[in-house]
């Protein structure tokens, strides 16, 4: 793990050039840090939604920067689908340990066991939509008033109109027609009891911006983001992991070993891999730069319908 993650606790000796230099303003980074500080100042119970993916790992780094030399002043919340890549979970635990932040985990499996949601079945079964219930329950349980997430506007069309502070009602619903205008960089976090705000500090970043930042900062990310050999099978032109039992595979879907990496690390059952030999961050960045398939193209749940994301968001999906 990167040694920089422990700096919240130790003072670094300053290099000579650092002493005579000028803060180099990276517009996107400055903006994200500004937003995170507004969250800490305007809300009483913020939480950072941590999926173990590269976007939320980037958020954690930005939060470290925003509050240094203090610790990150809010806990991390992981909604565990139970379908995570084992690499992601191991990574999460190590990161939390080094940062000394509080980690809260709530399980979709518990929501299923309590009969609050019903597991999907069939070929395209996924727990992605089930997460919503578990998330809303956790928000209520801890009375979170601001949930910081790593969504980006370039990911998907419906997200393009999402605000940086996005107010949700008691049911977690998003009313896209009644959003608050966001002028200059002023963020209005005034809410009523029962409402909460979803906050997107890296709204304006593109996938490439995130990858370049990870490269520049030397941030550690889970190994599944890098090319590795994996047992896989093909379906609908996409590559799926056959290594674990979580992804449903029909008998006629043949298992084959391929060199792949993942571009997102959502629920394993709806996260397809891409063929790749990019096994270092530099190679990944180069590959993304030339890439012609958008990130969410590899997520089956969005392909279900064009309006899929929008509908899920209205229901409280992150």
């Amino acid at each position: 793990m990167n040694t920089e993650t422990t700096l919240a606790l130790e003072k670094q000796p300053l290099s000579p050039e650092a002493i005579t230099s000028r803060v180099q303003a990276n517009a996107l980074e400055n903006e994200a840090i500004y937003i995170l500080r507004e969250v800490a100042a305007q809300f009483e119970r913020p939480v950072l939604l941590f999926s173990g993916g590269k976007d939320s790992i980037t958020l954690v780094r930005l939060a470290q920067k925003a509050f240094y030399p203090a610790r990150i002043p809010f806990p991390l919340l992981h909604i565990d689908t139970g379908h995570n890549f084992p690499e992601t979970i191991a990574f999460r635990d190590e990161l939390v340990n080094e940062l000394g932040v509080e980690l809260i985990v709530r399980n979709v499996q518990d929501s299923i066991d309590q009969g609050k949601v019903v597991e999907e079945t069939g070929k395209y079964a996924s727990r992605n939509t089930l997460q919503t219930t578990t998330l809303l329950d956790a928000i209520e349980e801890f009375k979170f008033d601001a949930c910081i997430g790593g969504a980006r506007r370039d990911e998907e069309k419906a997200r393009a109109k999402e605000r940086i502070f996005s107010v949700r009602d008691d049911f977690g619903q998003w009313d896209e027609k009644n959003q608050r205008p966001e002028l200059f960089d002023m963020l209005n976090g005034n809410i009523e009891i029962g409402q909460n705000v979803r906050v997107f500090p890296i709204s304006n970043w593109t996938e490439l911006d995130v990858w370049s930042y990870i490269q520049k900062e030397g941030i550690d990310i889970p190994s599944i983001y890098f090319a590795h050999e994996r047992e896989t099978f093909l379906r609908d032109g996409l590559i799926w992991s056959a290594q674990d039992d979580i992804v449903f595979r029909a008998e006629d879907e043949e298992v084959e070993s391929r060199w792949v990496r993942f571009r997102t690390v959502g629920d394993m059952s709806c996260t397809a891999a891409v063929e790749s030999h990019a096994d270092t961050i530099d190679k990944v960045v180069a590959e993304i730069r030339d890439s012609k398939i958008s990130e969410r193209g590899a997520r089956i749940d969005d392909k279900r319908s064009e309006a899929a994301m929008e509908k899920r968001k209205q229901q409280g999906y992150f």
């Binding site: 920089e4 700096l7 003072k11 670094q12 300053l14 650092a18 002493i19 005579t20 230099s21 000028r22 803060v23 303003a25 517009a27 980074e29 400055n30 903006e31 840090i33 500004y34 500080r37 470290q64 920067k65 925003a66 240094y68 030399p69």
Partner: peptide, 16 residues
């Protein structure tokens, strides 16, 4: 003037 764990001599508009 801190930016994360480094100190600097100068900073300009837009810097957090």
């Amino acid at each position: 003037i801190f930016f994360f764990d480094q100190t600097f001599d100068k900073a300009g508009a837009g810097s957090s």
